[in-house]
Each structure stands twice: as C-alpha cells, then as structure tokens.
Design a protein around this nucleic acid. Structure first.
Length: 736
DNA sequence: TCATCTTACGTTTTT
DNA sequence: CGTAAGATGA
C-alpha cells in the first residue's frame, strides 16, 4: 500500500454520492456502462471517478483518456476535477473527440499524407471546396446541392468509410452515382491543400491506429483508463476508435462510458444509438450501473416524462425516481390555444405572472422544436418588454466579418492558405472578380503554387486587370509587413495593421447600414480574444476547434432555444410550445425515417420535459401561421402519451375553436403521414375548391393554372413544365 | 465588375 | 413571409 496517498475516505468525496453513484465511481477495472438518466448526477460521477483514479494512485493524469462532445463539457469536467483534487492538473488527455484527435493527428500526420501543420477547414471552406470539386463533373447543382453532397460525405466519414472502402451496398444514387467520385476528388483536394475537415480528424486517426500497430500499441501503453461522456451520441467511427484504443492485449478494456439512450437525439448527424444499446455485446464482461435517482425535478414531471418515454421500444429501460422525498409540485400543464399568436400570448402572460410572483426570468426557458418558432415569442416579448435571450442563433465565429478577419489571420500565418485567399481576395473590392479568380486558379494549378503566388508571378498581369494586379501586389506587401510585426509587436498588432491597411476596417466604416458598427465591435472583440493566446498559431488552432464564444449568462432574461440546444441544461420553469403533429413530431420525421425517427422525436420531448425543475407547460395551437399561410393542426401524439394523472389540461380560450385533445386514442392510431400529405396535416383543401382557373403549386412541376377538373384528376397548365394531368393530392392551392 | 432583380426554399448542431 | 444565393442587365 502506498502510504503517501490518503485513503479515499479521508477526502470524503465518496460520501457525497448515493449508492449507485458510488458503485460507478469505485468500479475501476473492466468495461463499465453508466446509464445515467436526466438529472441523476452524471457529471458528478464522471469527475469524481476521474479524481478517484488520481487520488488512489491508480493512474497518473496523463494515463487517463477522457472524451466529451463539446468544449463546454470538457471545460466543466476539468474544473470540477481540479476542485476535487484541490489543485490544477496538467497533461490531461481530456477534451472533445476532435481536440484529442487533432493532438494525435499532429503527431502522426505523415502517415495519412499530411504535414503536421495541416489546417482544419471550417464549414464555409468545405462548401467552397466541394463546389469546386463538383463543377467539372457537370452535376446539376440545383438538383444535387453542394450542401447535400457534403452531408453525404460526412455521413460516410461518420461510418468510417473512405472513398475506396465504400461497398456498392453503402453507395448512394446521389448525384447520379457520382457521389463516390466526388468524395475521392474532395479528399485529394484536401490533401493537396494540406487540410482536413472535422470528420477527417477522427477518421484519419482511426485509420492510423488500425493500420499501424506500433502506433496503437504506444497508446495502449499510455492510456490505462478511458472515459467517455454522452456515449449515446457517438458515431460509428468514434465507436471504432474507442474500441481500438480500449482493447489491449490480454486485458479487459478499462473503459467507462456514461450515457442515456433516452437522450439520444443526434442520429441525423451520424450518432448511432446502437452503440449504447449493444454495449454489453461489444465489451464482454461489461458491468452496467443505472443511475435513476433524479435530483432535479418534481414527482409530477418525472412521472410525466417516464410515461411518455415508455412508448419507445428501442431502449435499455430505466425509471427516474425523485432523489429526495416529498418533492411534489404541480402537474404538467397542457395549454390549448386557438392559434400560434394565442400560444405566444398565453406563454408570455404566464411568464409575466410568474415574474410578478418573484420568479427570475433567467429561471424560465422556452424550448422550441425548430428555430423559426422563436420569432413569435421574440415579437411578443419585445412588445411586452420582457427581457429575453436567444441561445444558439448565429454564433460569434460564424459571423461574416469574423470569418473574413480570420481569413486574413490565416493568410498572415500562412501565405499558402488558398481557401483563405479566395475568401478575402476581393473583400474589400479590389477588382478581382470571378473571371480573374478562375484564371488565377488555372495558373496556380499549372505551376503547382498557391493562388496568391500565382497571381503575383511574373506573368500575373496577364491574369488580371492592371487595377487588380496593383491591388494584389499592395496586399501582398501588407501581409509581408504584418509578418515582420508578428515577432516584435505581436500577433494582435500585426493583424490589426493588416486589416487596417488592406482597407477591410475602412470598408465597414464606410458601410452605412445599421449593422456596420456592430461588426466593427465584433472585430474588436476578436482582437481581445486573440490577445489571450501566446501566438497566432495557437489562436488559430483554438478557434478551429472551439467555435463557441461563451455566452454571458448572468443577467435576468428568459431563455429561448431549441430542444436540442437545451440538452444538459435545467430551469425552474420550462415552456414547451408547438406540440402539434407536423411541428413536433416534425413533418420530416413523420414522412421519412419511420418508427426510428419518431422515437427520436419522442426522446427529444423527453429531454424537453426533464429540463424542468418545478413546472412544465406544454402548449398546442389549432391554427398556425407557417410562412405565408395559415395551417390547421392537431395536438401532438406526445401530449396524449403523457399519463392523464400527471397532466392538467387547460383551455383558457373557452368558446373559441380550440383543438380537441385526442387523448383517449392510443398513439398507434396516429398514422405516419405519407409523403404526398406533406403540408396538409389535417386540412387538405376539399375537392370542391379545385376549380378551373385556380393557381396551384406542384412539388416537381412548379406553378400552374388548373384548366380542367375531372374528379380527383386535374389538367394543369404549368408555367415551366407545360400541360400535365396530375392527381389533386399532389398539388397545393395557391391563395391569391 | 457590380448592383439589382428574381427565385427557391424553408428541422434539429458540434466540432 | 423573409432570407439568401444565383441570374441578369448596366
């Protein structure tokens, strides 16, 4: 026994845990799955377990690999570990999958044909690159959008599929079967740019570990313990990566995964709920510990949420129990509103009433399914002077001015960054348009030099107008001067000088729009963030991975965000508007994906309800304004799935037409809507409304005018597609 | 090359 | 209805 290590009891940190939590912390060896329901102290267990490994001398800090999905989670874990241990801990392998993989990939980049200086592309770069790759293929970009193509590639990367390992069964007919070729070309372009995208970070490292046993062995030697947060959100590549790292020879994997199958809501970005469902099979001798004592919500909310989620079949099953006795509160309120405006009225009125009773705005949240729903609430709260904040909108580093400034920064660090050059070559206007850019591209490809170099080469003037040529030469000088400043006056001064002299800052000063001053402020904010890093390189590495600028919480405002954005948060009062078929569950999930995606929607509802500590208010409206026109809607099947004894149905608009709550009907009676019922949740126009002369819209043929009505078949003169006979259910009437 | 018009589109988000 | 990205004309 090592006597210099104090016994765990001496620290007392184990005493603060309940029995299950303590078991999870003390189960050190072998595979472990901690099924942690909402509000059951998941982070506490994870951090205490980490600290326990350190304090008992089981592992040194660098021997534990701990992966999370968000930087926020990683930061929180590190803070709490340090609090438990009582001092700062360095040399941790604690971070997001992406951050950990960058660290590994920089070490072994050569094995996948990259330098250790490789750049990480942001979404804008990816789109621009994929467009360039698609152009020569002659694919109709209107039908197969670059965005969707990128999605296809990302899903492949999520499943550890490289262009050469895609089997015919895994291929797609997207882009007329050329998707694989585009993927291949895209990867080649990335390699020639010495760059990779987010998916590559994981996939490259996985390939390295898979194909180079000596590298894998070195990590086996290094990591004695592995911990994974939000295991239900892992994609196939991350799962394979974890399995390689954890399965050491002759030893049980010391891997502990924490997750909640009931909170798996990210399948659309590649997460495989199967990973958590088949943990026992993947890791033989796995131990499973359930954390079911909830320290967050009242009995009513827990029962309502449990009753709802019980309608899912694909789950490991667990029941939330109140962690302390007698936490009774009020039932879950179900508000019926006549229309979406009424819904906003009802909710804001309740917010005001609660605030008058002394509740803080900051302890209330409106959680919506889709971001377009926030608008109605913004309008009302603005009008009523209720302070609010929208969480999750456009993030700081996604703003155009920030991306521009960062492109200048990248070019300052590396003159060969072609994607950065493309972004700012003509921002502000320097007389370098699309044609000039094309010529520069051609020259650069022929001479195998970066774009900037090609444009400035001796025969450069042939590529550009004199004006453009001069402007670019000046820009190049500005960057050269900036690079001299990097060493002396520092990177902030250097970038500021470049942006000033290049005329970028002046461009916004001259801009007369109302947003312009704010944009200059944002750039100042960027300088401030930059100053906290020792070098330009360090700063660029950071922002490539950490795209979140911490939102200032603190002030007393109502929180408005999507259900996805609310995961992991909690509030005293939670408002859940838009619980209607076609909104929530969303139309898309009803049309595509079948039962699986319906279950994911239900998990999302479960996540929403379990955010509430003391009260949850669900709302549904009978009519909703969507885009141009009004649509009728019926209450979400999820409302009916909440057991009646935990529900309090209120109809504040008695006398108005409000939807019948179809509670007695079991959920299975709701049909999964067929695609052709799109947009007609309950009220497709009756046949009589189709008359000759009416304008209609058809998904494929576009706009047209009805010529003849023959039963349910219409002859329509389409503006683009000509005369067609179509079934009435395929067209929408256009109100004029 | 740039400003204006037109048209298509319209879950969920992190890294 | 509003936006954002392409097409069109000066």
């Amino acid at each position: 026994m090592n006597h210099s290590v104090p016994s765990p009891e001496a620290h007392g940190y184990l005493k603060r845990l309940n029995l299950e939590q303590r078991a999870a912390v003390e189960s050190i060896d072998g595979p472990l799955l901690i099924l942690a329901g909402a509000g059951t102290g998941k982070t506490r267990v994870l951090t205490t377990r980490f600290a326990h490994l350190l304090l008992t001398g089981k592992a040194r800090p660098h021997q534990i690999l701990a992966v999370t999905f968000t930087n926020k989670a990683a930061r929180e874990m590190k803070d709490r570990i340090e609090t438990l241990v009582g001092h700062t801990v360095d040399g941790l392998w604690l971070g997001t999958f992406h951050a950990i993989c960058v660290r590994m990939l920089r070490r072994h980049a050569a094995l996948v044909g990259l330098s250790n200086q490789f750049t990480i592309l942001d979404t804008d770069d990816q789109i621009r690159l994929i467009k360039q790759v698609m152009e020569p293929t002659g694919i109709d970009v209107k039908r197969w959008s670059p965005n969707a193509m990128l999605g296809v590639i990302q899903r492949w990367k999520d499943r550890a599929l490289t262009p050469t390992s895609i089997t015919p069964a895994e291929d797609t007919d997207f882009a007329q079967g050329k998707a694989r070729d585009i993927y291949l070309a895209y990867q080649e372009r990335l390699r020639s740019l010495d760059a990779c995208d987010f998916g590559d970070l994981i996939l490259h490292v996985y390939e390295i570990l898979r194909l180079h046993p000596e590298v894998l062995k070195s990590y086996h030697h290094l990591f004695r313990y592995i911990m994974v947060d939000e295991y239900q959100d892992t994609n196939t590549t991350q799962y394979l990566w974890l399995r390689l790292l954890s399965q050491r020879q002759d030893e049980d994997a010391n891997i502990a995964c924490v997750g909640d199958d009931d909170q798996s809501i990210y399948s659309w970005r590649g997460a495989e709920i199967e990973n958590i469902l088949r943990f026992e099979r993947d890791f033989p001798k796995a131990k499973i510990i359930r954390l079911e004592q909830n320290y967050r919500s009242t009995q009513e909310i827990l029962s309502a949420a449990s009753g709802l989620i019980a309608h899912n079949h694909d789950r490991l099953g667990k029941t939330l129990r109140p962690g302390t006795d007698d936490r009774r509160g009020e039932k879950v309120t179900i508000l019926a509103a006549p229309d979406s405006d009424g819904e906003a009225h009802l909710i804001t009125a309740r917010i005001e009433a609660l605030h008058r009773e002394g509740h803080d705005y900051a302890q209330m949240a409106i959680l919506v399914r889709a971001s377009f729903q926030t608008r109605a609430f913004e309008d009302r709260m603005l009008a009523k002077n209720i302070p609010y904040r929208i969480i999750g909108g456009i993030r700081f580093y996604e703003r155009a001015e920030i991306r521009d400034a960062l492109a200048y920064a990248r070019l300052l660090a590396r003159p060969g960054d072609d994607l950065a050059f493309e972004r700012i070559a003509n921002t502000p206007r320097r007389g370098i348009g699309a044609t000039a850019m094309q010529k520069i591209h051609a020259a650069a490809r022929a001479q195998h030099v970066p774009l900037m170099a090609a444009a400035l080469a001796e025969d450069g003037p042939k590529l550009l107008t004199r004006k453009g040529q001069e402007a670019l030469a000046a820009l190049s000088d500005i960057f050269a001067q900036g690079r001299e400043k990097l060493g002396g006056e520092g990177h902030v001064v250097a970038l500021e000088a470049v942006l000033e002299e290049a005329g970028y800052l002046q461009m916004w000063r001259d801009d007369k729009s109302i947003e312009a001053p704010g944009k200059l402020d944002n750039i100042k904010e960027l300088f401030r963030a930059m100053a906290e890093f020792p070098s330009l390189e360090a700063f660029l590495e950071h922002i490539a991975l950490v795209m979140d600028a911490d939102a200032v919480q603190g002030d007393d405002k109502v929180n408005v965000m999507t259900l996805h954005g609310a995961k992991g948060l909690e509030f005293d009062t939670v408002f859940l508007p838009g619980w209607e078929e076609g909104i929530f569950p969303s139309q898309r999930s009803l049309e595509e994906g079948g039962e699986r995606s319906l279950e994911e929607e239900r998990r999302l509802a479960y996540v929403g309800l379990t955010r509430a500590r003391v009260r949850a208010i669900i709302c549904h409206a009978a009519r909703r304004r969507i885009y141009a026109n009004w649509q009728d809607s019926i209450p979400s099947r999820f409302v009916g799935e909440i057991p009646e004894e935990w529900r309090n149905d209120i109809n504040p608009y008695n006398g108005f037409r409000v939807p019948e709550t179809p509670f007695p009907r079991p959920a299975s009676h709701w049909p999964i809507l067929a695609r052709r019922d799109r947009g007609k949740t309950s009220m497709s126009p009756p046949m009589e409304e189709f008359e000759a002369g009416h304008r209609v819209f058809h998904q494929k043929y576009g706009y047209g005018t009805i010529m003849v009505v023959n039963g349910e078949t219409l002859s329509v003169a389409f503006e683009k597609a000509g005369d067609k006979a179509v079934h009435a259910s395929y067209v929408d009437l256009i109100s004029s």
